Computed example of a mutant assay.
Amino acid sequence: MIARDLLLQTAAALRHAQRILVITGAGLSADSGLPTYRGVGGLYNGTTTDGLPIEMALSGPMLRRDPALCWKYIAELGKACLGAQPNPAHYAIAQLQRIKPECWVLTQNVDGYHRAAGSPDERLIEIHGTLSPLFCQSCGAVDPQLSEHLHRPMPPLCKQCQGVLRPPVVLFQEMLPQRAIETLYEEMAKGFDAVLTIGTTASFPYIHEPVLRARVAGGFTAEINPQRTDHSAAMDVFLGCRALEVMEELVSHI
């Protein structure tokens, strides 16, 4: 059971904040039926059926060396994402962005659910990219037909030049999208009055840094997660639950 005073404290802080950053991870989309990347039922646990660590199978070097093998696992992720849809917590976050015109979303998720739920492109930072549209690594042609390719032999090939297609997603051992990183640091430089993390362990430095910066500047920080993380104790508020259980009510008080 969520402590109501903590929920109301969080709502009050967000209500009075002007610049807000919502950071989301796999735990948010778990309520849509997607597996989280680590932990119980994790998509990336252990080794693959090919006997390789998932970090090797689903990497940039593997896409170049053995595109069919890499695409086998990209396709698993693609089918999972296309087989589900945004949940009420995604819609609540989009509603928060409508209420607060300086509310940003920084997501590690590649499923595209924030955009589908109505989060505006101009205040959405997809730091690990997205699964569509596909593009050709040889000629650059864009192919929006991800779902069709998932039911065809792998890897998917370009209709123009027969080059191997890929999604604009960050695979293991690849660089983060330059524009996304630039946008994140531009907005962090302006400061955030409140930072809310949802369904993430915030283990990457670029995910945890906005929380640290807000805390140092005297801003409000809160975490929504079923399990405590390494950062929970330092948050102003920790709500030990799934986002689906609390986000709609939280936003209703704002």
Rank of each mutant, 00 (worst) to 15 (best):
V216G: 00
E122L: 08
C241G: 02
P210F: 10
R65F: 14
Q145D: 15
A11C: 05
R38L: 12
N87M: 05
A217L: 12
G191C: 03
A75Q: 13
I127A: 05
L6I: 00
D193H: 14
L106I: 02
A11S: 06
C81E: 06
P226I: 04
A26K: 04
P101W: 03
R166W: 06
P67S: 04
C136R: 07
G60A: 13
L184H: 00
L250P: 00
V246F: 10
A217P: 02
N109S: 03
A30K: 11
H128T: 06
F220L: 10
G78L: 12
K190I: 08
V170W: 00
C241K: 10
L196R: 09
R38Q: 13
D193C: 09
A13R: 05
H253C: 13
A11R: 00
L212Y: 09
E223R: 03
T183I: 14
G41L: 06
E249R: 15
T49Q: 14
V105M: 04
A194H: 01
T130L: 10
I254H: 01
N87V: 04
L34C: 05
R152V: 07
G140N: 07
I198D: 06
P61H: 05
H114Y: 05
G83M: 08
H90L: 01
P205E: 07
Y113E: 03
P167W: 07
A11V: 03
H253Y: 15
G83R: 04
D236T: 06
Y206H: 15
D193W: 01
E122Q: 14
V170I: 04
R123Q: 14
L28Q: 07
M154V: 10
D31P: 00
A117Y: 08
K159I: 02
P155R: 10
V169G: 06
A84I: 07
V40H: 15
T48K: 08
L165S: 06
T24D: 05
A13C: 07
E174H: 00
P101M: 05
D66N: 15
L21I: 07
S203H: 12
Q178D: 13
V105C: 02
A117H: 06
T130Q: 14
F204T: 14
L196G: 06
T48L: 12
R19K: 13
G46V: 08
C241S: 14
N87Y: 10
D50G: 07
P205C: 03
G163M: 08
E223T: 02
G41I: 07
Q18A: 11
D31H: 04
I99S: 12
F135P: 00
T201H: 06
K159P: 01
Y185T: 05
S232I: 01
E76Q: 15
R65N: 14
R228G: 15
T24R: 08
A222G: 11
G112Q: 08
N109M: 09
H90D: 12
T229H: 13
H149K: 08
E148C: 06
G118W: 12
V251I: 15
E126P: 01
S32L: 01
G112L: 01
R123Y: 02
L96V: 05
L171K: 02
D5I: 09
P205H: 15
